Simulated assay, not measured.
Amino acid sequence: MRASVLVEPGRIEMEERVVPSPGPGDVLVKVASVGICGSDTHFYREGRIGDFVVDQPLVLGHESSGTIVAVGADVSADRIGQRVSIEPQRPDPASEESRRGLYHLCPHMQFFAAPPFDGALAEYVTIGSGFAHAIPEDMSDDAAALCEPLSVAIAANRKAGVTAGSRVLVAGAGPIGIATLQSALAFGATEVIVTDLDPVRREMATKFGATAVLDPREQDVAGLHVDAFIDASGAPSAVTAGIEAVRPAGTVVLVGMGADEMTLPVHIIQHRELLLTGVFRYANTWQAAISLERSGRVDLDSMVTKRFPLAEAEQALNADRIPGSLKAVVRVQE
């Protein structure tokens, strides 16, 4: 099979590799679509994210969909031919975190494209059967792949306690910010304010339903008095401003990848008794993601602004530098 391989920071090569065999409990998926995530671009350009360091050739990509073409032992052959959205996680079912239902925090996690584990920018991948989620026939391959970033957004809104009538502030109108915006509205928020430095992305946020969009350089958010603030930017200045915008006893959720360390307004967090937490991955989100997309409350297909064949994966990894680009997708079989 063909695989797009990060051989060193800034260099991608196409390789021929052996098609993997599904082990017990696994399925073999012929990959259709792979979304390009900010973490992929970080690994591609810098070779690391925090403690995750690329020190050997790595296949990127963890937002993926495809069709089951073979199954391992203990998996029904009825699954062959099923179109699926891949939840790119292999937790240890015996770990304490997994047994508590927090399998996404398993310390022994094997996660697609998190070094040293290969991801989905290849023609075939294997995954545990329970993490290959069947999708409706009318769901596109691209939308099925983007159930992964939508799952991040669902996890963030759950942690933020977003519900009917909530007022929410989202910093950053990239793919995660737009997915978070859509999810918040689907959860019942009646006001979702989005901030971003880029006027094109602010316009996109309006298109996807934001009740207001702000340029944080020109408009102060401190007095918004929102119920929840979700940061999808990773920018220290956005995090500080967002915390100042939250009402007493509100919630702050950090999602964006930014600085390893930042200074926070502790007096505000303490005096307002704010709940400050983070989102790393997700657990038990896929059926909600599929349902939200199928119901039309979330539009994943419209988030895709660029498509590339597998041979042009490197161009896809640089698509975020194209003005007006929101989400690039690699169509593996094209």
Rank of each mutant, 00 (worst) to 15 (best):
A94E: 15
T206P: 05
R217Q: 13
P216F: 03
F280M: 12
D227R: 00
R17V: 15
L121S: 05
H42L: 08
S4G: 10
K159W: 04
E87H: 12
G50P: 06
A319C: 04
A132N: 08
I193R: 05
E191G: 09
G234Y: 01
R202A: 00
R272P: 06
S183F: 00
F308I: 09
T305H: 04
A288Y: 07
D320Q: 10
H133Y: 14
V253A: 02
S302L: 11
L275C: 14
Q82C: 12
T163K: 11
E96A: 15
P248F: 12
I49H: 05
G250L: 02
P265Q: 12
P57D: 08
A114N: 14
N157Q: 10
R90M: 13
T163R: 11
P323G: 02
M204G: 06
P91A: 11
L121H: 03
R83G: 02
A77P: 10
T251S: 05
T251M: 04
E13A: 09
E46L: 05
C106G: 05
V71H: 00
P309K: 09
E137L: 10
G174K: 02
L310Q: 06
L326F: 01
Q89Y: 12
V31M: 08
A311S: 15
R272S: 12
E96W: 12
I230R: 00
L275S: 15
G278A: 13
V27Y: 02
V200H: 08
G278P: 01
F280Q: 12
P236L: 09
E137M: 06
Q182S: 04
A245S: 15
V18I: 14
T67Y: 05
V27W: 04
A132V: 05
T211N: 13
P88D: 10
T180Q: 08
I178R: 00
V53P: 03
Q219R: 15
A171L: 03
L276S: 09
V226S: 00
R281W: 10
F208G: 00
L146F: 07
A120I: 04
V54S: 03
C37A: 05
V194K: 00
R11M: 14
V29C: 04
